[in-house]
Design a protein around this nucleic acid. Structure first.
Lengths: 210, 210
DNA sequence: TAGATTGTTAATCGATTAACAATC
DNA sequence: TAGATTGTTAATCGATTAACAATC
């Protein structure tokens, strides 16, 4: 698919570029230089140019970057031009919060199903999506060509469920369970470890006080 | 408070060390060498030793590290020995999900209040915590010595609310709104940008496929 | 004491920043 | 053409890994 491996440090910055470019675009701004973007985003102009040039020359000497064009290109790099089909495992508050985030749908992330082990929830609807028993997961993944699974379940079951999902052919896991998943090569895992994040905040609070 | 500034790269790894040490401790394991930990955590032993030695010599030559002791020390470094008093701004699903996470309380993060602008929610209880109107925020922060605010509100109001909170004396913001907050020096912001995380997953999916 | 393993210094690697020639 | 700004190479900085003397 691509030539050189891009470092995750660069990848992590792409969504932020995308966000700021979207805002510029919405504000009706047509062109932007790396220096102007640098001032707004508080990163160096040099880093912006280096980051972008990992993917191609999107700018023009003496002019800068066309906002709309760059926005679209970064969107494509991020894979937002393709549809992703997701299921959520765990119909708790977190799972519900994610399903209700309308912005994901706008970016091509389509929630197709929600699964849980609590039979009291089976058949209930969350934003039009039926909660199903985990036993139906395999067939559902195959029939609906699901490529991403979102894990909002406790950590003790997460490892096992992740293994199942991989065996069903899922390609990516958005993992909110507080455990590290070990998956085969070619399967992508993106972790959101909320308690790690809160501990980081706590560290910074304690280390900067006084 | 401390001598040399520790890099955020190191800080980001501390919660993960803490988690694995907790698991070892729960498994009744008393000692661990950097090499053993390296095998389990899939990071280099050298990095583990370097990271820990930023904060002091917790090990012993020829022996390794005492699991319980190291666990406690990292907990202290992370500020988990101190109580944190939190409020949540935004009583939606995400806010509710966080309040219901019992693990945070266990680590000394005490949710004291929930605020929202929707008057239909005023007075309702979420896990025993009353939802209050935003107008009461200032007095509540002062009277309850709140040090952390959790922002689970839309991005358009987040910047303004953050400014208010800072003026009320809040020290840390756990920001789930999809916007960058600019706060005075001495105030800590920890961002959880969920859509950035999902885009990263999307990038890795698209770039590794085929 | 001998073996094991840390703490720490030195070497390497990668990421960021600076500089500037190319070019619109 | 002159000015502006990119794309890209070179320099710097910081983080990771390797090596080993110190020491339990």
């Amino acid at each position: 698919m691509e030539e050189k491996e891009i470092s995750q440090a660069v990848v992590s910055r792409l969504p932020r570029y995308f966000r700021y470019l979207g805002e510029l675009k919405d504000a009706g701004i047509e062109r932007v230089s790396s220096q102007e973007l640098s001032d707004i985003m508080r990163v160096t102009a040099s880093q912006i140019r280096q980051d972008l040039n990992n993917f191609g020359g999107f700018g023009q000497q003496g002019y800068g970057y066309n906002v709309g064009y760059l926005y679209d290109e970064i969107g494509k790099i991020l894979g937002l031009h393709k549809e992703h089909r997701l299921i959520i495992i765990g119909a708790g508050h977190l799972g519900q919060a994610l399903v209700n985030y309308m912005n994901f749908e706008r970016r091509g992330f389509l929630f197709k199903g929600i699964f849980d082990i609590d039979e009291k929830l089976f058949g209930t609807q969350i934003r039009g999506i039926t909660v199903r028993p985990m036993q139906e997961m395999e067939r559902f993944v195959l029939e609906n060509e699901i490529d991403i699974a979102v894990l909002t379940i406790p950590k003790n079951s997460a490892v096992e469920v992740a293994e199942q999902l991989v065996s069903y052919g899922i390609k990516g896991i958005w993992n909110f369970a507080h455990v590290d998943l070990h998956v085969p090569r070619g399967i992508q895992v993106e972790n959101v470890h909320l308690s790690d994040s809160l501990m980081k905040l706590s560290y910074n609070l304690v280390s900067h006080e006084g």
